[in-house]
Computed example of a mutant assay.
Amino acid sequence: MTAVTLLGTAGGPGGHARRSGIASLVEVAGVRMLVDAGVGVVRQLAGVGLTCGDIDVVFLTHLHDDHTAGLPALMTFRHTMRRGPLTLIGPPGTVALRDGVLAYMGANTAIRGQEGRLVDPVTLFEARDVEPGIVYSDAAFQVTAAENSHYALTRFDSPQKSYALRFDTASRSLVFTGDTGESRAVEDLARGADVLVSEMVTDADVAAVPPPVQAHMRAEHLSPEQVGALAAAADVGKVVLSHYTDASADDLEAIRREFPGDVIAGEDLMRV
């Protein structure tokens, strides 16, 4: 059985009154995985009856802070509670991010280590920087990454990549767009998937940010019309919106004009 729960559906930095930071739970054949770890992810796991110790793998689509801000809590609480190893898989920079979180954990480890033996946290947290392609597989499922266009306007001195992810299991195929603008690579990755979990940025979202950020919002995210066009071109079964602020009736209608299948406005703790 393959189950997906939207733990948090908010995109962008800062707090949101009605949504936790972006994070999704994927469960396949007894393996529990996170796609991204936005702020509040530990609380949201509790909301579905799980703890930080119940996760086996964390996949990071990219390293923007709204996708990683919950990772320090997930890791340090797991260590404090004496839970087992955790694997982090993501684009270049994931290993360095893991190392930064371990440095943050140093003070807590020194203090709580006096209350009872704690293992060296370095031994608990494996991290892998991966390139596009198959990034994880076992007998029950396979995870494939494709580089998307979220950094289309940005130039870096060091390698930075943003990924969409596809989970292929015996019962379902799931694609998470991650943060992206229009992308043929994402369309190809999503082709024929049962569920497309897609980000969305509306005109209201663009209007709410400072003018220097608006070009990024329009070029490196998906409008409702673009979500619909992607879903139709990839011939997916249904669209589930996540990483968005609000979806008005007009926004949903804009998607449905392009895509004839089911369109669901995702909410925190929704199982899809």
Rank of each mutant, 00 (worst) to 15 (best):
L50W: 13
E182G: 05
G181T: 09
I22S: 09
L88F: 03
L97F: 13
R83L: 05
P159C: 07
D168Y: 01
A232P: 02
R256Y: 00
E253H: 02
I55E: 15
D54S: 11
L25E: 15
V227F: 02
R117A: 08
L189W: 01
V135G: 04
T51F: 02
L45F: 03
E258Y: 05
T61K: 00
L45W: 09
E267Y: 04
A247V: 11
I264N: 02
V263Q: 04
A107P: 14
D129C: 09
A170I: 07
A185W: 04
V39I: 09
P212L: 14
V130D: 14
R83E: 15
A265M: 09
G133P: 00
A46S: 15
R172W: 03
G237Y: 00
L74P: 00
E115R: 03
L60A: 02
D120T: 10
H243L: 14
D250T: 10
A37R: 01
D205M: 14
D99W: 10
R184T: 11
P260Q: 02
F176H: 06
F259R: 06
Q114I: 13
L7V: 11
R172D: 12
V195F: 14
G228D: 14
Q44V: 12
V195W: 15
T123V: 07
A249Q: 12
F59I: 10
D36N: 15
A145Q: 08
K161C: 10
P212I: 14
L174S: 05
E267S: 11
L34E: 14
I255R: 02
F176C: 04
V209R: 02
H79Y: 10
I55Q: 07
S173R: 08
T180C: 08
A146P: 00
L63S: 11
A23F: 07
L74G: 01
V263W: 07
G21E: 08
L230K: 00
R117W: 07
H221A: 12
G192Q: 08
T2D: 09
E147F: 02
V41Y: 02
A219L: 10
P13A: 15
A233T: 11
R166T: 12
V58S: 04
D188T: 14
A219V: 12
E126N: 07
G116D: 09
D138M: 06
V197W: 08
D203W: 05
F77Q: 13
L222D: 10
Y163M: 05
N108E: 02
V236T: 11
M1C: 05
P159S: 03
L189Q: 10
G113D: 12
Q114N: 08
G106P: 15
